[in-house]
Design a protein around this nucleic acid. Structure first.
Length: 941
RNA sequence: GGGGCAGUGGCCCAAUUGGCAGGAGGCAACUGACUUAAAAUCAGUAAGGUUGUGGGUUCGAAUCCCACCUGCCCCA
C-alpha cells in the first residue's frame, strides 16, 4: 500500500462547498419532465449557535434528500429561520440590544454554521419569518381568516400579573409567580384572538392519506380528544319561597355536556366552573361572601393543580338550585375548581355514584349519592359505597329506562346511551353531541417581537382589517424595552394611532401573533420567497406541493404538526390552492393531492442526542470536621490508584457541586458533603497553580444537554477536529436516528478510522492488472449486497445500518487489497459503487475521491448504483434445522432449495434422527429464504 | 395529572417485522508492530447472553397480548 497523501478534510471540504455553491449545484428548479421530491426539515430558531441537535436533525435528512436526487428525483431541500419569539425580547431587556439586531446577527452566524454541514440546501429559497417580506403574508393569512370567520376575538383565561398589570406568557410564569419579579400571577378571563381550530377537529382525526408515525397519530388523536354523548339543558330553579332579591332568575338555562346521558337520573347536584358567568348571577346573598372568596382563591391555582386527580376537592355551594329535566328533581348548584371553564360548557351535572371525581366531591360535602347503574352480581348502595362505579350494569331508578343494559361502549353503540339520547331528543331537553378536548387556537400575544395583527379598532368599538395595500403592518424599530412585561407597542404613539378606512382616528391592535402562526406555512414561502402577488407562486406550488418528506422532532406532535394540518385545510377551503390545482391539472398532476388538506405526506421524527456520561474528579479533601460535614481548606484531584491508605478527610468522586458545596461518593453507596472554604487550596493535575472551585469537574449522568449542566457538545469543535463528513457520518452511525441517545466522544473514532481507511483504499491501492475470478465475483457480490443494504437503509431512515454496511464493504476491500487477487477493472468498479453509495452520507470526501478516480464532476449528479439481485445472491446457504423450535443442525444447501428437498434433508440429518428416534414427525414447518435471510425448517415431534 | 417511547454482551447498536440472538457495524478489551516510553496509528485476536421482571398466545417470541419495574420525551 502506498499512500500518496493524507486525508485532510480542512482542505477538501471548503473547496467543494465553494465549488458547489458557485455552480449552483443544489439549485432546485421546476422541471415538469422529472418527478419531484420536496424534502423538508424543520427550520431552526435563530438562538445564536447551531447545536449538535440541529446536525442530528438535518444532516441525515440531507443524506436522504441527496439519495432521492441520485434516484432521479428533482429534489427541493430548502432552509430558513423561524425568527420571531420571546428569547429575542429577553435579550433586548437583559443586554440592551434590539431584538431585530440580535436576531439577524444570530441568523448570520447560523447561516455560516449551516453551510459547514455540506448540505444541499437551496439557499436561493431561504425564508426568514421576521422579514417584512415574509410576515406581510403571515398578516395576510390572518386577514383571510378574519374575513372568513376563522379568526375571532373571545374570552380566555390568561396569566395576569396584578403587579405589572399585564398578561404573561406561560414561559414567564414559574410556580404561579412571575419569573422576573417573583410576584404572584392569577388566572383571569381576558379578550384574546383565536382561530377556529375545532372547526377541523373531525377532519384532523383522519390520517388515512398520510404516512406519519403511529405515536404522532395517537398523540394527535388524544389531543383532539373526541368524546360522544349529549348536550342537556338544565334550568335554574325558582328562588326559595322566601323570595329574596337574589338576582336568580328562574328558568336561566345551564347547558351541560355529558358522555353518560344514561346516568342522568343519578345527577344529584351540578357544578359550575368558578369562572362560569352564571356563578355570580345565581349566588344567594348568604352564600355570596363564601363564593366570592372561593372564586378569588381558585384564580390563583393553575390548571395543572386543578386537574390533578389526587388533589383534595374544594368547592362552595352557591345557594341556588337547578331542575333536573329528566325527573324534575331540585338539585343544588355548587362551584368547584375541578370543573374547567375551557372544557365543554364549563358546567357539569354531577353523578357521584358513577363518576370518580363527583363521588369524591359528594362524600366530602355530604351530598346525595344515587345509584342508577346496578352491576350484575353486586348490590351498590349510594349511602355505603366506597368508590364510584363508572362501568357497565343495568339502569335502575331511571324511570322508563329501568332494566336497560349499559355497556362499556361509548356513544350510540351503548344501548343505554342510545335509548336515552333518542328520548331526550324526542322531548326536546337534550341532543346528541360531540365534544372535543381541543380548544380554539389562541394566537394573540401581548409582545413586541412577532407579526402584528393587522386590525384597526375604530372609535365606535368595531374593528376592521388593515387594507391589503397597507400590508404589512410594520413593527416599529424605535421602541424601548423596559422590564415591565408589557409590550413596547402599547407606548409607541406612532404605531398606536392610525385612521380607519373612513379617515377617522383609530387605534391599532397591539397584540402580535403566536410564532406557531409563522411556522405554520413556511414551506409554501420557500417555493417563491420573493413572490409579491401572494404567499406563494402557484406555478411553483403546482409542481412541488405537497411536501413529500418532513423530518424533525417529535416534541412538535400536538402543536406545530397539528397547526400545520389545520392551516392546509383552512387554506384549501378559502380557495388558496385553486389556481395551483388548475396548473396541476394542466400538467397532468392529480389536484386531489391538495384537496386532502394535508401539508406533508410523510413524516419521520428523530430522537434526541443526549449529553455524554462523564466521570467526576476523584478528590482528596482535607480540613476540619463539623458534625458530618467537612469544611475543606485543601482539595486535591488525584488518581484513584494513588489514593493514600489513610487520611483525615474525604476521598472519592465528585457527583454533584452546588456553589461551594460538593457531594462526594466515597464508595460503598455512601456520600459525604464537603463545603469548600473560600480561600481553599485546590489542585488539579495538568493545570498549573491553584485552581478555582469552578474548575472541579463533577459527575454527569446521561441526560439532555444544557448549558447549566455543562454537557453541551459543540459541533463546530468536532468539525474543526475531524471534518464535517466525519461528524455527519458519526451522527448517522452512532445512533438509532428515530431514538437518539448519548453522545460518545470515543465512538466517533470508528468513523474517523472508516473515513481514513476509505481515503487510503481509494488513493493508495494499486491493484494487479488481472485478478482471480472467484475473488472478483465475491467482491462483486458484496458490493451488490451493500447496494441493497444502503438503499433500504436510506429509504427507511435507518442511517446507522447504512453506514455499517459501508464499513463492512470497507473491510472487504481491505481484505481484497491485502490478498491482491482482485484485478484493476473489478477493483475500480467496486470503488466506484462505494463512492456513489457514500455520496449522501459524506458528500465532500465522496466528491474528492470521485474526482481523483478521474470520473466526471459531480458525484452528486450521478445516478444511484443499480442493484442486481443475481449478482448479490449466494450460491450455497445454510439451512437451519430446528426440532420443536430449537436449533439442532445446520446444513449447507443450494440457494433455491424447495420445501420437499429441505424436509428430506432435515429428516435425514443427525440432529433430527437422534430426537425423532425412528418415529414420525407430527408436523414439519418450512420457512423459505426471503430477503437476505436463510431458509429454516422446524420439525415438531 | 394526561399522553407517548424505550429497555438486547462492559458501552453505542443489528436482527429484513413471529423463524439460527451477532459471517451487521463500531467503541472498549487483549496481542503484536512503530516508539526510550506512552498516546496516536497500523496489523491481528478472542471473550462476552435467562433479550428489564413475571405470566400468556404459538411448532417457534427480543418481536404479539397482559401485569409490573426502570429510564427518557412531550403537553398542560
Amino acid at each position: 500500500m502506498t499512500t500518496t497523501d493524507k486525508y485532510n478534510p480542512q482542505d477538501i471540504e471548503p473547496k467543494w462547498q465553494q465549488r458547489w455553491e458557485a455552480d449552483r449545484l443544489y439549485r432546485a428548479v421546476v422541471d415538469w419532465s422529472k418527478p419531484k421530491h420536496y424534502a423538508l426539515t424543520m427550520l431552526p430558531y435563530p438562538s445564536g449557535d447551531l447545536h449538535i441537535g440541529h446536525w442530528f436533525a438535518m444532516t441525515p435528512s440531507d443524506a436522504r434528500a441527496r439519495y432521492k436526487r441520485m434516484r432521479g428525483f428533482n429534489v427541493l431541500f430548502p432552509m430558513g429561520f423561524d425568527a420571531f419569539g420571546l428569547p429575542a425580547e429577553n435579550a433586548a431587556i437583559q443586554r440592551n440590544i434590539h431584538p431585530k439586531k440580535w436576531t439577524y446577527a444570530n441568523i448570520e452566524n447560523m447561516r455560516r454554521q449551516l453551510r459547514s454541514m455540506g448540505a444541499m440546501f437551496d439557499w436561493e429559497r431561504e425564508a426568514v419569518s421576521c422579514d417584512p417580506s415574509y410576515y406581510k403574508w403571515t398578516e395576510w393569512f390572518f386577514k383571510q381568516f378574519f374575513e372568513n370567520d376563522l379568526a375571532y376575538r373571545g374570552e380566555a383565561l390568561v396569566n395576569w400579573s396584578p403587579t405589572l398589570q399585564t398578561v404573561l406568557a406561560n414561559e414567564q410564569v414559574i410556580d404561579g409567580k412571575d419569573e422576573r419579579t417573583g410576584q404572584p400571577v392569577i388566572q383571569k378571563m381576558m379578550t384574546q384572538w383565536f382561530f377556529r381550530y375545532t372547526r377541523y377537529a373531525e377532519e384532523m382525526l383522519d390520517f388515512s392519506r398520510i404516512d406519519w408515525p403511529e405515536p404522532i397519530k395517537t398523540m394527535q388523536t388524544n389531543w383532539i380528544g373526541k368524546s360522544e354523548g349529549a348536550r342537556v339543558v338544565f334550568h335554574v330553579a325558582a328562588p326559595l319561597p322566601e323570595g329574596e332579591g337574589t338576582g336568580v332568575r328562574a328558568g336561566d338555562p345551564i347547558e351541560v355536556f355529558t358522555t353518560r346521558p344514561d346516568t342522568l337520573w343519578g345527577a344529584t347536584f351540578m357544578v359550575l366552573a368558578p369562572e362560569h358567568p352564571l356563578v355570580e348571577k345565581i349566588t344567594t346573598p348568604e352564600q355570596r361572601a363564601a363564593v366570592e372568596a372561593y372564586v378569588e382563591q381558585a384564580a390563583r391555582a393553575t390548571e395543572i393543580e386543578r386537574t390533578a386527580e389526587d388533589r383534595e376537592k374544594t368547592g362552595v355551594f352557591t345557594g341556588a338550585y337547578a331542575i333536573n329535566p329528566v325527573n324534575d328533581e331540585r338539585i343544588p348548584i355548587w362551584t368547584a375548581d375541578y370543573v374547567m371553564i375551557s372544557y365543554g360548557s364549563g358546567a357539569i351535572m354531577a353523578v357521584p355514584a358513577h363518576d370518580e371525581r363527583d363521588f369524591e366531591f359528594a362524600r366530602k360535602f355530604g351530598l346525595k349519592v344515587r345509584v342508577v347503574i346496578q352491576p350484575e352480581g353486586m348490590a351498590l348502595d349510594g349511602d355505603t359505597m366506597t368508590e364510584a362505579w363508572p362501568h357497565e350494569g343495568l339502569m335502575v331508578n331511571s324511570g322508563p329506562f329501568d332494566g336497560t343494559p349499559a355497556t362499556r361502549e361509548k356513544g350510540r353503540k351503548n344501548p343505554a346511551i342510545n335509548a336515552v339520547i333518542d328520548w331526550l331528543e324526542a322531548r326536546g331537553i337534550g341532543k346528541e353531541a360531540i365534544n372535543y378536548r381541543l380548544r380554539d387556537w389562541l394566537i394573540s400575544r401581548q409582545r413586541y417581537w412577532g407579526a402584528p395583527i393587522p386590525v384597526i379598532h375604530r372609535q365606535d368599538g368595531t374593528m376592521e382589517a388593515v387594507p391589503d395595500d397597507q400590508l404589512p403592518v410594520l413593527l416599529p424599530d424605535d421602541v424601548e424595552f423596559l422590564p415591565t412585561g408589557q409590550s413596547p407597542l402599547l407606548f409607541h404613539q406612532g404605531f398606536l394611532n392610525t385612521v380607519d378606512s373612513e379617515g377617522r382616528p383609530a387605534r391599532r391592535e397591539t397584540d402580535t401573533m403566536d410564532t406557531f402562526m409563522c411556522s405554520s406555512w413556511y414551506w409554501y414561502r420557500y417555493l417563491s420567497p420573493h413572490y409579491e402577488a401572494g404567499p406563494f407562486d402557484p406555478e411553483e406550488a403546482a409542481y412541488w406541493l405537497p411536501v413529500d418528506t418532513y423530518t424533525g422532532g417529535a416534541e412538535h406532535a400536538t402543536m406545530h404538526l397539528l397547526y400545520a394540518r389545520w392551516f392546509a385545510k383552512a387554506m384549501r377551503d378559502l380557495g388558496m390552492f385553486e389556481e395551483t390545482q388548475r396548473i396541476m391539472r394542466a400538467h397532468g398532476r392529480d389536484p386531489e393531492l391538495l384537496a386532502w388538506g394535508e401539508p406533508m405526506l410523510q413524516l419521520r421524527n428523530q430522537g434526541q442526542v443526549l449529553g455524554e456520561e462523564r466521570d467526576g474528579h476523584f478528590i482528596l479533601a482535607t480540613g476540619t470536621w463539623q458534625a458530618a460535614k467537612l469544611f475543606a481548606d485543601r482539595v486535591e484531584v488525584i488518581d484513584p490508584k494513588d489514593a493514600p491508605a489513610s487520611f483525615d478527610g474525604v476521598m472519592g468522586e465528585i457527583v454533584k457541586r452546588t456553589e461551594n458545596i460538593l457531594t462526594v461518593d466515597i464508595g460503598g453507596g455512601d456520600f459525604r458533603t464537603v463545603e469548600v472554604l473560600p480561600d481553599a487550596f485546590i489542585t488539579i493535575p495538568n493545570i498549573d497553580g491553584p485552581c478555582r472551585i469552578e474548575q472541579l469537574r463533577h459527575h454527569l449522568d446521561i441526560q439532555r444537554m444544557s448549558k447549566s449542566k455543562g454537557n453541551v457538545v459543540n459541533p463546530d469543535e468536532w468539525v474543526a477536529r475531524h471534518g464535517a463528513d466525519t461528524v455527519r457520518a458519526y451522527l448517522m452511525f452512532g445512533f438509532d436516528w428515530q431514538k437518539g441517545g448519548p453522545w460518545d466522544s470515543k465512538g466517533i473514532q470508528g468513523v474517523v478510522r472508516w473515513i481514513n481507511d476509505v481515503w487510503d483504499i481509494v488513493t493508495g491501492i494499486e491493484p494487479p492488472a488481472a485478478g482471480d475470478l472467484e475473488a472478483e465475483r465475491t467482491l462483486e457480490r458484496r458490493v451488490h449486497q451493500t447496494i441493497k443494504k444502503v438503499t433500504d437503509a436510506l429509504e427507511n431512515f435507518s442511517f446507522n445500518t447504512g453506514v455499517a454496511g459501508l464499513m463492512a464493504l470497507r473491510n472487504e476491500l481491505k481484505a481484497a487489497a491485502r490478498a491482491g487477487n482482485v484485478g484493476a477493472d473489478a477493483w475500480r468498479e467496486a470503488v466506484r459503487s462505494m463512492l456513489l453509495l457514500m455520496a449522501p452520507f459524506t458528500p465532500h470526501i465522496a466528491e474528492e475521491l470521485w474526482a481523483r478516480q478521474g470520473h466526471p464532476y459531480s458525484v452528486h449528479m450521478q445516478g444511484w448504483p443499480a442493484y442486481d439481485a443475481d449478482k448479490a445472491a449466494e450460491d450455497l446457504v445454510t439451512l437451519v434445522v430446528q426440532v420443536n423450535g430449537k436449533v439442532r443442525d445446520r446444513l449447507q444447501v443450494p440457494a433455491g432449495i424447495t420445501a420437499e428437498e429441505a424436509e428430506r434433508l432435515a429428516l435425514d440429518s443427525d440432529g433430527v434422527k437422534k430426537l425423532l428416534d425412528g418415529g414420525q414427525p407430527r408436523r414439519v414447518i418450512f420457512v423459505e429464504a426471503r430477503g437476505g435471510q436463510e431458509p429454516k425448517i422446524n420439525v415438531v415431534v
